[in-house]
């Protein structure tokens, strides 16, 4: 039940090899790995961009719209895929953890690091777009890493909680994956929070990804930093991680035996 720091320090090479294995697996299986990573958000960008132009819909976005959605989508994808990977970690690593002892928290944390590579690769076109539109980061650039850290913690916490829930409700995974798609539309991915009427703002900020997405864009595009929303995201992430760790450490052995 307890977490032994020495054990995890000793397992650091094991951890890096597991990360390497996951990365290796993704570009081993997919030939157009790089193209695919960038194509997904780009297709969304095209669809929503055309929709916005033809319908003249208001999105409340002051930045170039392409830049706005693309940056939001890549971070959302990271969150979505990582939390799914975390929640599925036992099934995905079943052949390992039924045969060999691996410290409990190694397999769920591997996707946090391994999926960063996808995020970095899909951020390359973003840099191109920023140069094209002439949008540059301001002083808040140093908040990129802390914001990313929030998203990582959020993915970990959410994934661990879902892993524990699926122990009692075996098909909950599907519901979770679907709600992540839905959640994209209530998060500031394709429209700006400015579209939300003021009196709903408090409720809107209960969505833990709002602060992270706003902070991410502010850091990238040199806008004023949304401290309040960002800190509430941080608080949410911390709570999710604590609850997730508690549930996971408590039920992990049952999950392993249920394979």
């Amino acid at each position: 039940m307890a977490i032994d720091p020495q054990e995890y320090w000793n397992a650091r090479y094991m951890f890096s090899m597991l990360v390497w294995k996951k990365i290796r697996a993704s570009f081993g299986e997919m030939y157009f790995w790089f193209v695919w990573l960038c194509a997904r958000p780009l297709i969304y960008v095209t669809i929503f961009g055309l929709f916005k132009r033809w319908s003249e819909a208001k999105t409340g976005v002051e930045l170039p719209y392409t830049l706005y959605i693309y940056s939001g989508l890549i971070l959302w994808y990271y969150f979505m895929e990582t939390s799914i990977d975390v929640s599925m970690n036992i099934k995905a690593n079943a052949s390992l953890i039924t045969k060999i002892y691996i410290p409990r928290l190694l397999t769920p944390t591997v996707p946090l690091i391994a999926n960063l590579l996808d995020l970095i690769v899909s951020a390359i076109p973003l840099v191109g777009m920023m140069v094209y539109f002439g949008v540059y980061p301001g002083r808040a650039i140093f908040m990129i890493l802390p914001t990313l850290l929030i998203v990582m913690l959020m993915s970990l916490g959410t994934g661990l909680i879902i892993a524990a829930v699926t122990l009692r409700l075996r098909d909950f995974q599907k519901v979770f994956e679907f709600s992540l798609y839905l959640a994209m539309f209530v998060s500031p991915v394709i429209f700006s929070p400015k579209m939300i009427p003021d009196r709903f703002h408090i409720i809107y900020q209960l969505n833990p990804m709002v602060g992270a997405l706003m902070g991410w864009r502010a850091a990238l595009f040199g806008e004023g930093f949304p401290w309040q929303a960002w800190l509430s995201s941080l608080a949410f992430a911390m709570i999710a991680v604590i609850v997730g760790l508690y549930l996971y450490m408590r039920y992990e052995h049952e999950l392993v035996e249920a394979i």
């Binding site: 122990l167 009692r168 409700l169 075996r170 098909d171 909950f172 519901v175 049952e254 249920a258």
Partner: peptide
Amino acid sequence: TGGSATLG
């Protein structure tokens, strides 16, 4: 399959 259920 005891100890768990499905949403169905």
